[in-house]
Design a protein around this nucleic acid. Structure first.
Lengths: 335, 335
DNA sequence: TTGAAAGCGCTACCAG
DNA sequence: CTGGTAGCGCTTTCAA
């Protein structure tokens, strides 16, 4: 079923059918009716590939994320998609599972689809990818990676500041043995968060012992990390997690070991996803506004929506500390 | 940058370039080299729209879900995608948010993309949609809805059985005041689960008082439902939830009200997503094998992968009760 | 082993 | 207001 068949059936030219299907220009009402009838009788659905090939532009934008399973990424996706729909765009998302090869694959795919814009919200990164992307004249927005240029915009989070806030806060509560739970990621903001942790501790809390650990980004990852830490002989009074998901995993293991949170051990998250409020105990965490990131990404990608927001910008977001029930004064030192 | 330019640069015809790009037929090695070089020098990426238009077939399969945020759906997506990748397919997913209009929109979009197959994993349904889908000769697999035919396969879960198991289990623990927390959905399996609940109770536990309630499918939805139930004067000894996400929401509200789970109130979930193990207390729930569903969906959609699995089949999955810490004997009746 | 050319289904421009 | 038609970028015979 193609335009031609519809045209034949309606007794008009393909041009006319195309017109009614695109609400474009003027078509006599009776003609429109006839075409519409043919369309529904034939159960016709326009071939979108042919469409965007002919138009030379596709009305879809791409988003690539490290782990859509993590609500942090999904929340961004949601608002991006909402904005997109509001402007007549579709968004197609891809997952990389923190794998650089997978990232490259997805980027190629998106370019192949000739997306109108591409949001790359990932932690891992491939060296040549950025230049490859810069070379293609595709509009791109990176999260936490790359540098702005003519077609590339940037959104970053001031992790360092976020980590500082937690560390200072915990230090003020007399915590002197801290553990940091991160997750594996080739490069970028994760090790960045870890680096931020290490540097912050040595600057603001030099009297503090610490230790870091990385597993995979999931509930089980947090659980496993906590398991290793608690089995290591290093007895932290607080565990700082790279995100809320892992913190929930940590919470469980800590509880199973018979420790009370926060009386025995404090735990913190990062991102402030909805789940952090529903954890037990609810998580002290750092808020990162995913909706804002989603809106920003869209406006940087679709020029018609950007009120004076030229591409090639860089925006930095400051995390805010959210105090809940998973943190408290450090426990007295126990043998 | 098109095939033509690459061909020009490499000093060959477009046909040849196409050949090397598709690993097809024999191309002299030196020629191949030249083409490859031109490709990378030009930073060329084939236009996938043109490709699938010319080929008359796209190597992508579509999946439509009610709420990808809910790990139940996402887990299915993951295994579907893994299978797809293993066979050289891509999968593009869409979300409906339990909205029938949105569903119709997504289906049209998928047909427009000429996907090789479509998995529709939703609760809501539009009357004409099934016939529209049947009319298009697209291979489709429905979850919990529709009836098998030449191009349409079906996967369903025996909810009734699942609900029976929970109700009987709770009844055996002397629970006599049950609440059921569902979520809004125009039609289909949700109200089906609710119906199953009502019928099961009146058949297997006629001496039981009950009440049902529906909110939206999210942590907050569960919380809100619990809030309403606990404020209503109806004091259930157990709350049965339509899925794990909502159960976690319920858990929180129950806890905040000062009730202990399961000593004061038992809570059950459905699906057995990972989070159910990490909830506090861990959730008694019904296991539904998302990975199996994902594999099934793929094999029903892609004939080359189906070993004798003809389309038009219907498969029923039986939920299994998983006992954890959120359930226990009914509390003594309190004024 | 390679090239020429006919489409794939749709849009858009130019006439009428 | 409507029709004819030249592409969009790629694949795929058919010949050479």
């Amino acid at each position: 079923m193609s335009l031609t068949e519809v045209a034949k059936r309606a007794g008009v030219s393909t041009a006319t059918v195309s017109r009614v299907l695109n609400q474009a220009s003027v078509v006599r009402n009776s003609t429109r009716q006839r075409v519409m009838r043919a369309v529904s009788e034939l159960n016709y659905h326009p071939n979108l590939h042919a469409r965007s090939l002919a138009k030379g532009a596709s009305r879809t934008i791409g988003m690539i994320a490290s782990n859509l399973q993590n609500p942090f990424f999904f929340d961004i996706f949601r608002t991006l998609e909402a904005d997109a729909h509001a402007h007549g765009y579709e968004v197609v998302a891809a997952n990389t599972d923190y794998d650089a090869a997978h990232l490259v694959r997805s980027v190629r795919l998106m370019i192949g689809r000739r997306v109108a814009g591409l949001a790359v919200i990932v932690s891992e990164m491939n060296k040549d990818l950025i230049s490859e992307l810069a070379a293609s004249k595709l509009r791109v927005v990176f999260y936490d990676v790359g540098t702005p240029c003519r077609t590339i915009s940037n959104i970053r989070v001031n992790y360092r500041r976020g980590i500082e806030r937690v560390v200072e806060y915990l230090h003020s509560l007399n915590h002197r043995r801290l553990a940091f739970v991160g997750h594996h990621a080739a490069l970028g903001p994760l090790s960045e968060r870890e680096k931020a942790f290490i540097e912050t501790v040595s600057r603001y809390a030099p009297d503090t012992e610490w230790r870091t650990l990385a597993t995979h980004d999931a509930l089980e990852g947090g659980q496993q990390a906590a398991h290793e830490i608690l089995s290591s002989g290093f007895n932290p009074t607080a565990i700082i997690c790279v995100n809320d998901i892992m913190a929930v995993g940590v919470l469980r293991e800590v509880r199973e070991r018979g420790f009370r949170v926060p009386q025995d051990i404090s735990v913190t998250g990062f991102d402030n996803i909805k789940l952090s409020e529903f954890a037990y105990p609810s998580l002290t965490t750092l808020h990162i506004p995913r909706d804002r990131i989603g809106h920003l990404a869209f406006s940087m990608l679709v020029p018609e929506s950007a009120r004076g927001k030229a591409p090639g910008r860089e925006i930095v977001i400051e995390p805010e500390l959210v105090l809940r029930d998973s943190t408290g004064p450090a426990a007295r030192a126990t043998a």
